[in-house]
Design a protein around this nucleic acid. Structure first.
Length: 453
RNA sequence: GGCCCUAUCGUCUAACGGUUAGGACGUAAGCUUUUCAAGCUUAAAAUCGGGGUUCGAUUCCCCGUAGGGUCACCA
């Protein structure tokens, strides 16, 4: 067969909307297949419909692919290739495989009175889909379909066939909705005497109600996920797993691993519901691969952007971002989690001394008097630690025995509350370490003063 | 409606004729814990229905059923 031919795949979106998550997965599968087989991956903008295509959408598609770093080797625009299509339309016309047809426009001024139709041989067409096996259509149902508005205005089925041939595309990996387009394209391919590419129709991505994913289901644009703060590698990882499986129990993959393990034969036939919960879990796993510096920078960027969006001039610096990271990195699944905390003021205690509630700082049935006693003990113990000794373990061992004796909640709750002013927060030892000696002692003293009043 | 595709826990999926039907997300419980997370352990949870084929069907075939795609001078 043609096994030694170089693999060429393509992603062929029409710039009539932003790149949605399903399109990204199609692009990904084409990308992975090409890379795996040392082939070429082509981006082809299918913008023959001038009325609906826009360069704004085109650049959005490109931006999304860049974000996911789905690098293509070549890029084409169909709007720049009309001469090529014209040549083939003429061949089809000359060989009597197509003809100019007089149309009844029904008074529609957008419709042409003359169009070019393909002369359908009305035969059964069978192709071997890499995912579904043999698929057969009776093309006599299709009639003499239109392949061009005029000799200079080709339509989808014609341009796809011509481009795939001209670009040497060997594998057409596209969404399931194109399955019924395949017989039409095969008819044109046969009329032109082209070699047939291999087809792989991948299943659709579904919304929770099993309908086709669309705008009304929330975020569907790929760039929405960038804006929410998902990591591109996590999105790729999740998308790959939606409809494909490695045959092992591994779930977290780098892009390199995906290229290594990807295989069309392991692609699922049925549609899959998109689950943001699982995406979020995968994102969290990928977050662990980020360096501490990257993590800090991302957090700083996110927080400052949020302040700006809220119309505040406040900004946090690197060391403040480091504090947030050290205290909260374990709790972040997606960077947009920070938005919520920030909105609820759950992060404020890191940057400013908290306002402490006199009622809430007292543990359960305890009293103000004993709370003061405990805080004084803590202050005294911590006072004995130098700045460089102010580490989690040292702080803990300075207080633990006492807390154990008096009741951990009795001692640790007020300690933590003095530092955070929050009913929920990281543990007091982490807080103390991150805040450092001065801030910690100051906040403990403040709490005592408040309680003494 | 015609044509085509699909069908395993709620969800993503494994099992390519023989398994106590496995894993993950989510859910619940327990452990841990000053709180909240995290972490660890455990549990509940599935082969759409009916016929075949076979010693034996999740797996192969047929018929239903359900869901989806497509039927443009869009792609």
């Amino acid at each position: 067969m043609e096994n030694n031919k170089q693999v060429v795949t393509r992603f062929a979106p029409s710039p009539t909307g932003s790149l949605h998550i399903g399109g990204s997965r199609t692009a990904l599968f084409n990308y992975l297949y090409a890379r795996k087989h040392n082939g070429r991956f082509i981006l082809r903008i299918e913008d023959t419909d001038k009325a609906r295509s826009s360069t704004a959408f085109e650049s959005e598609i490109i931006k999304a692919m860049e974000w996911l770093s789905l690098k293509y080797d070549e890029m084409y625009r169909q709007s720049e290739r009309e001469e090529i299509y014209k040549k083939y339309i003429e061949i089809l016309l000359k060989n009597d495989n197509a003809y100019i047809s007089k149309e009844d426009t029904g008074g529609d001024e957008n419709k042409r009175s003359e169009v070019i139709r393909f002369k359908n041989p009305n035969e059964k067409v069978t192709f071997d889909d890499l995912i579904r096996g043999e698929v057969t259509f009776d093309t006599s149902d299709l009639g003499d379909f239109i392949i061009a508005r005029s000799i200079d205005e080709p339509l989808y089925h014609l341009t796809v066939v011509v481009d795939d041939k001209e670009m040497g595309v060997t594998h057409v990996i596209r969404a399931e909705e194109h399955i019924s387009n395949t017989p039409r394209q095969l008819l044109i391919i046969r009329a032109l005497g082209f070699e047939e590419p291999k087809y792989a129709h991948i299943p659709l991505i579904l919304a929770p109600d099993k309908s086709k994913l669309s705008k009304r289901h929330g975020a569907v644009s790929t760039l929405d996920y960038r804006d929410k703060g998902y990591l591109p590698d996590a999105v790729i990882n999740y998308l790959a797993l939606l409809g494909w499986n490695p045959g092992t129990e591994q779930e977290i993959f780098s892009k390199q691993e995906l290229i290594e393990f990807f295989s069309i034969s392991q692609v699922q036939k049925g549609g899959a519901i998109f689950s943001e919960e699982k995406l979020s879990w995968i994102n969290k796993a990928h977050l662990k691969n980020l360096s501490k510096i990257e993590l800090r920078d991302q957090i700083q960027k996110r927080i400052n952007a949020n302040y700006k969006a809220l119309g505040k001039t406040t900004e946090i610096d690197e060391s403040q971002a480091e504090m947030v990271r050290d205290l909260f990195s374990e709790r972040i699944s997606v960077f947009c989690d920070i938005d919520e905390w920030q909105k609820n003021g759950e992060l404020d205690f890191i940057f400013n001394d908290p306002n402490i509630s006199k009622e809430e700082i007292v543990w359960k049935d305890s009293t103000i008097e004993s709370t003061i006693l405990h805080l004084n003990f803590i202050e005294e113990k911590l006072n004995n630690l130098s700045e460089s000794e102010f580490k989690y373990e040292r702080i803990k061992s300075a207080i633990w025995e006492y807390a154990d004796e008096k009741g951990r909640g009795e001692v640790l709750w007020p300690f933590r509350f003095a530092l955070s002013g929050q009913k929920k927060s990281p543990d007091p030892f982490s807080l103390a370490e991150v805040f450092g000696r001065d801030t910690t002692l100051k906040r403990v003293k403040n709490a005592v003063i408040l309680l003494t009043k």
